[in-house]
Design a protein around this nucleic acid. Sequence first.
DNA 1: AATGAATGAGGATTCATTCAT
DNA 2: GATGAATGAATCCTCATTCAT
Lengths: 198, 198, 198, 198
Amino acid sequence: MFDKYNKVQQAVLETTLRIIIQRELQATSMALIAKESGVSTGNIYHYFQSKEDIVNELYKGIVTFNGEYVIQGLNQKGTIRERFNWGWEKVIELSKKYPEGFLFIEQYSFSPYIYEEVKKEAYSGGWCGPMNKLYAEAIDQQLIIDMQPELMVQMHYGSIVYMVKGHIHGNIEFTEEIARNAIQACWNGISRDIQIAN
Amino acid sequence: MFDKYNKVQQAVLETTLRIIIQRELQATSMALIAKESGVSTGNIYHYFQSKEDIVNELYKGIVTFNGEYVIQGLNQKGTIRERFNWGWEKVIELSKKYPEGFLFIEQYSFSPYIYEEVKKEAYSGGWCGPMNKLYAEAIDQQLIIDMQPELMVQMHYGSIVYMVKGHIHGNIEFTEEIARNAIQACWNGISRDIQIAN
Amino acid sequence: MFDKYNKVQQAVLETTLRIIIQRELQATSMALIAKESGVSTGNIYHYFQSKEDIVNELYKGIVTFNGEYVIQGLNQKGTIRERFNWGWEKVIELSKKYPEGFLFIEQYSFSPYIYEEVKKEAYSGGWCGPMNKLYAEAIDQQLIIDMQPELMVQMHYGSIVYMVKGHIHGNIEFTEEIARNAIQACWNGISRDIQIAN
Amino acid sequence: MFDKYNKVQQAVLETTLRIIIQRELQATSMALIAKESGVSTGNIYHYFQSKEDIVNELYKGIVTFNGEYVIQGLNQKGTIRERFNWGWEKVIELSKKYPEGFLFIEQYSFSPYIYEEVKKEAYSGGWCGPMNKLYAEAIDQQLIIDMQPELMVQMHYGSIVYMVKGHIHGNIEFTEEIARNAIQACWNGISRDIQIAN
DNA sequence: AATGAATGAGGATTCATTCAT
DNA sequence: GATGAATGAATCCTCATTCAT
């Protein structure tokens, strides 16, 4: 997940991610990160400027990783509808294979702890841009209703996020079949065909 | 919002809510709460057992308030579809009239900082239970598809949450008309009629 | 020495002064100040903003104290020559009665650790201004040679400082009689009469 | 200035001197010395035992350098009075040509950071001994008053130090003419002739 | 010789909580 | 009830020093 970083940085980032998800940021002390990562505090500061820096680097790293992952789905050859499915399938896959990273981004994308500048970088490097573009195309081709693409993407991302959270923290089932149905529901909610039917 | 509490408690809870939303929990010190609420630290501890206690009390208070608010919509006389609309309209109204409370619940409903016991209480006292019940009825009457009601509620709540967050933190428009369309989209996504059409 | 401060502040200031003189600033940790003053670190920060603040407050307090002390000598009724003697006698008295404060001012009056603003305040509140004025009068009345008064005051202050330091740290005698002779030597060095004699 | 040391040692000593004068000892970290000198920390420890060692070596080096410089003036052929002038002129020259070394010695000659043993070596290797001897001769020849030579040397050194510091840190003029007058004032202050005249 | 990554004790400071008034 | 001074463990971070290369 943090390929472009060296061994020490990877250990720190992975450990920090794990602890933040398990115990929250406020309970994530440098001493704990040091202990659990096996890197001394001094050396952590050799590779990171501050605790904030670690968390922001984490954010960047995960956004990039998730972005590349989802964009694989979005950029495959296929119809808009297919690419829609593939994209959100990848998002759901992420939440299953890398739940910590998924939850981290979810929790911190609106946090003041993440620098505005990093959030902007995230937007351009992540999957939100390409997904928005797909929705815009779908509007152009009159496949879906004419709402702000960003809004619809947020809406659908929120749907998935909350199902995932309900699944992880609660006792809500979220099988692959259910996921498929949920993606279907997302499409149906904004599909032109359906508006007529309704 | 905190009617059942006394003046001092209200001041503390309101101040804490405001600071947590503005600056996050980790930046919310007791000293700051004391200063901004005009209640001395000593006196805060007279009315609350600990900082955790304040936050949990806050959670309970807001969940109850939000619950009553949304249930007003859900319990009105009307068809299932109408009550669906009224319920989610109330949720959106909450997000506009009481954004801090709305965001607080959003952020802390999966947090380890909130005691499991309080989360359970919240579930029974909040609007989730009644909303789930409405969805269950809708399934029974074959108005909507046969998914776990809890999952669908999460899905729709997530949709709204993310539109609201996109609206508050980003620059996404979220007018009343858009809200109506979004609720429509939620219904359409799971409506039986539509499944056929598709 | 720190009358205008409360008990806790006095304890902290006195302790800090002692430790700084004994062990130097770099060896003066907050933990040590806390331990030796009997004030907990937390409470120190209740009364002072930072370590820098303590040291600057110390500087201000001592400069004011020393200023009042020396100005007593300078402002007595008497000839310029007498007031010259009384002034420097007071400076020497200070170095004997309050050697720590004396050495502290000596060591930190050119230190970047002391805020420029505090140094300026010190100048107006201390004895340097009145002493300079006395020298200016002496020049006006053609009692002493026409050098910049500030320079001559620095020169004589330096003389005394180094005798004091030689006395405290080394094994140089510095009795009252010697002090009188030294003051005499200072005057002789710049006296008009003498210039002629030479 | 540090001829007897090798290139690496010279770089370290010069850098350390500069930083200490600019920012004080407590703000002079090994990392900073390494960075600014271009010598790695590891290598610094190859040539010096510790930070203390660097500072003490610095002290020794500068004392020796200053000693040789001033002794040039003191040892020229001439009358006592002339040698007195030449000696102090050299001291003042030092303060202008090598202000950092001058200030360093000034600040650290009474510091507990400098080992007692090094201070003793400094005394025998520096200019203080010869200067004291000159004053002793002057007393013998009844040119100056009968005070402890060490005391008078301290007194005059202090005069110069404080004029220099006032010049460097404040806005006091200190031209060559003024310097000559100041040296004259030093002599006059302790001259026998003058005592009579007075 | 030389590098700079690695160490971890110690630094200043904060903060939830207690306690005397 | 109410105040805010007092506590000290815990926080983030620095820094002299060591060690593997």
